[in-house]
Structure formats: C-alpha cells, structure tokens
C-alpha cells in the first residue's frame, strides 16, 4: 500500500480533530478526502506528511512509518499545503529553483514530470509569485511539489478559491500525473470533484462516513430523489417540511431534492398537496442522487 492509516486519532487540547480513522490508498491511485472545512482533512495530511504525531494508531506512507521513519518520508513525498505556500517575493522561476535545490535536484533533471504544467506558467517565469492569479499560483505550487519526483503526492485543498477553468485544468493534470505512476491523496470541500477520484472517503467532524468508489457511494443511496420546483422557493420548502410523508427535503439549485418515506410514492399525491398549499408552476420529476445527497444522508 502507498498510504495506510489504522485507527488514527488526534486531539488538539480538548478538541478531537480526527477519531479512529482507517483507510488505505493503493499505489497509483487517485484518492479523495471529501468533506467540509474543520472536518479533519488537514490534520490527516499533516499526520501523513510527518508534521504531526498521532495520539494513537499507526500510519505508513510509501512503506515508512510516519513517526519512526519521518526522515525517509520527507525525502519521498511531495506536499502542497492548504494555502499555496510559495514565496510571494520570489519569481516563478526562483521559487521552482529554490524547491529543486533544497530537495537536492534541478529543474532540468525532472523537467519531463512537470513539463506540461510548467509550459502554462513559463511565459510568466520572471513574475513574482505574489502577482500571479489563483490558478497560476496553484500550478506553480504543484510544480514545486513535484520537482523532486515524489512517489506520493499530498494535495490539501488544491482547488479552493480557484476559478472553474483552473479547477478543471488542475484535475486533468492530476489524471496525467496518475498515469505516470504517482500516488495522489487529494482533499476538497467541493462534492462535485469527488466523481473525479478513483476512490473517496467522505469525512465530517473527524470521522469517516464512508469509503468507496464515487459510483458505489451514490448507488448506495436508499431512496428515490425527486426534483421539485414551484413558483416560490420559500413557500415550497415550508410546505414540504410540513408534508406528512416527508423523509428529507433540501434546496438544490433551482429545485429542492425531496425524498418520501413511502415505497409507493405517487407524484400526483404530492402535486395535489402542493397545489392545496397555494403553490403554482409545480414541477416534480425523479432524478439521480449525487455525492452531496449521499453525504447528507450519511451525515444525518
């Protein structure tokens, strides 16, 4: 296994950051830790990158123990912390050269690995990192984390605060890196990014809700979901919340996602109820559950 955690727990003073976390990541896998802020994602990253010592449990990265063999791990992993940790006052090229030197390598030596990312920021190589856009900072940070050809890559919320175009490009880059045999552990608060991972762990409040492939997690969703829409969103939610057969209702973009307690649910029943409540333009149709639905169901 490239990464394995077994019953890892960690508290800061009284606050339990993560509790009894166990999972593994296979070599060459793209594994996602999906969950909101404060869920414990960063703590897991810091334990795996040897920055924190767990209170209990064991973990290994590339076969090395995170406590005993921390020096070996530090040589063989790439880490991109939550904020794009670059030297703002150094240029793109100087940043990259610096990180290459401290890892005892040069840009030329591993250029093939970063080439397709670096060419995108190369036109700005003399610009200071502080003056780059979010997307370019993200690419530079990734180059810096890759420059020593790590076996395992840790990316803590690499797409937070980045525009959709850069996000999309970033995931495409990760897929290409994966093809080159690098194991990647990535975290994100965006549920829509979960589908891009091979396997994911849903995490909230320091506990793992489920671990599986994105498809398997969605297919485990126990109910049929209905997209419901009407002329007034607020009244619609209120009405549904008072409906006797309600299982759950959540706003979801222009619709609400509604699930019913009964197995024999009839759309017309709900429609007539909503009409009675004074709503118009009623729209009801069944839809596919997504990761976010699954997450909410598991977190309930």
């Amino acid at each position: 296994m490239s990464i394995s955690l077994s019953n890892i727990s960690k508290s800061y003073k009284k606050v339990k950051a993560v509790q009894n976390i166990s999972f593994y990541v296979k070599p060459g896998e793209l594994f996602g830790l999906i969950g909101p802020d404060g869920g414990g994602k960063t703590t897991i990253f810091r334990i795996l990158t040897t920055l924190l010592i767990p209170d209990s449990g064991t973990a290994t990265v590339a076969g090395f123990d995170v406590v005993k063999d921390y020096k070996a791990i530090r040589k063989s992993v790439g880490y991109m912390p939550g904020r794009f940790s670059l030297y703002q006052d150094l240029t793109v090229e100087e940043n990259l050269t610096f990180f290459a030197t401290i890892f005892g390598t040069t840009i030329e030596e591993n250029y093939d690995l970063i080439e397709d990312i670096y060419v995108q920021i190369a036109p700005f190589k003399d610009r200071r990192a502080g003056k780059l856009s979010g997307g370019m900072k993200q690419k530079l940070a990734l180059c810096c984390a890759l420059i020593h050809k790590p076996k395992v890559l840790f990316l803590d919320e690499p797409t937070t605060g980045v525009d959709p175009v850069s996000r999309k490009e970033f995931w495409e880059m990760l897929k290409r890196l994966q093809k080159k045999g690098i194991t990647i552990l990535v975290s994100t608060p965006y549920m829509d990014e979960a589908a891009l991972c091979d396997r994911i762990a849903l995490i909230q409040d320091g506990e793992i809700l489920d671990i599986d492939t994105p498809n398997a997690i969605v297919s485990k969703f126990p109910k049929t979901i209905y997209n419901v829409g009407a002329n007034n969103m607020y009244k619609l939610i209120k009405a549904l919340q008072h409906y006797e057969h309600l299982y759950s209702v959540f706003p979801f973009g222009e619709f609400v996602h509604y699930t019913d307690k009964r197995d024999s649910f009839e759309v017309v029943d709900l429609k007539s109820y909503l009409e009675k409540e004074g709503l118009t333009d009623i729209h009801i149709e069944s839809t596919q559950a997504n990761i976010e639905d699954a997450f909410m169901e598991l977190a309930k």
């Binding site: 909101p36 802020d37 608060p189 549920m191 607020y234 009244k235 939610i237 706003p251 976010e292 909410m296």
Partner: peptide, 21 residues
Amino acid sequence: TGGVDPITRRHFWEMIYKAAH
C-alpha cells in the same frame, strides 16, 4: 457558504429564501 458542510449550507439557503420572500 464556501467550505461549509452540505446540510448547514442548505439551512443557510433556506434562510436566504426566507429573507428574499
């Protein structure tokens, strides 16, 4: 609502709908 858990996020939007209403 950046970074908030999905359920809280929904609650937040419910509050927004209410205010708009």
